[in-house]
Amino acid sequence: MQLTNRAKPVEKKAMNFSERIYLPAIMKGMSITFRHMFKKEPTIRYPEQKRDFSPVYRGVHILKRDENGAERCTACGLCALSCPAEAITMTAAERQPGEENLYREEKYASKYEINMLRCIFCGLCEEACPKEAIFLSNSIAMSNYGRKDFIYGKDRLVEPVSPPAEHVNNFEEVRREKWLSDTGREK
């Protein structure tokens, strides 16, 4: 039974002399190979080298601290509510007297988890946050061996206590200025 008429019968012709010695075919192949040595590489040596991201790139989340180093997040749950992938879960706790330097408001997130496998990096959590606590940074999610390693807790989300100066207050602005200088645009 024939379904289409595209089938071709195999032709077995005898090879001519130049085909029989193979040298022209080898020369042709090697010329393509050597030509690529002088072309610009399309790949980079990641992770030593990294590509520049767009200023609006949405990477792994970061939970910001305020200017005094206290966590901004108050566990209001709006990020989890806005999340279309339901990747965010949190548990709130009440700040105890003496913890004012750790947490900015009387409620804080004692547990805050983002499942990076669920996350689609849409940035709606960033939009929803009333406290400017969560931002999508310009680093990409690290690879891991197990699924459970993709559930990022507060240990990996909260920014370090003494971050590099450029990251402290004007996160967005620094990112934009870097992009302007990198791309050689006027401010």
């Binding site: 209001c76 749950g77 989890a80 509510l81 709130a92 706790a93 009440e94």
Partner: peptide, 9 residues
């Protein structure tokens, strides 16, 4: 119920 959850969860 203080800070246990948000009502919409």
């Amino acid at each position: 119920f203080r800070f246990k959850s948000r009502v919409w969860f």
